[in-house]
Structure formats: C-alpha cells, structure tokens
Amino acid sequence: MDPMTLLTLLICAGILFGAVAAVSMGNVVSAVIAAGLTSLFAAVTYVILSAPDVAMTEASIGSGLSTAIFLYAINRTRRQEHEKDD
C-alpha cells in the first residue's frame, strides 16, 4: 500500500477514535482532552490537504484555546459544587 494512503488512513482512524471517545467517555475532563486530540489530528489532515494556514489555526485555536475554555468552564462549575458542599 502507498505510504501516503496508509498515513491518511491512520490519521482518519485517529480522528474517528478521538471523536467517539469525546462523545462517549465517562469523565468530562477526559472527553475534553479527546476532543483536543481530534482537533490536533484534523490539523495534520489540513497539512495533507495543502492548507497550512488552516492547519496552524486549527492547531492553535481549535486544539489549544477551545480546550482551555472547556477546562475553565469545568473548573468554574466544580468550584461551585465545592462551595455548596461546605
């Protein structure tokens, strides 16, 4: 098999695996990390599709900033839970 096809196949399998994990994982933090992994694989796919600017944006914003926003929101709701318990 062509090595390019094999690489594409592996990356698409990684994307689909990450998406399934993001949707179905029990822990919310793990699901957010899986979604970030999906974005990172999507960035590699954009490089293969010769869109380097989109790949840079996806890797920095879709994978970095989005994960940071999600983790911040989870942290906010958890802290309220602790205050309610005390």
């Binding site: 993001a22 699901a31 974005s39 999507a42 879709g62």
Partner: peptide, 8 residues
C-alpha cells in the same frame, strides 16, 4: 463538546 466535534 459534541457541537465542537461536529464543527470540526
């Protein structure tokens, strides 16, 4: 989170 995945 699923909305983000669908957007990607």
């Amino acid at each position: 989170l699923a909305l983000a995945v669908a957007e990607a």
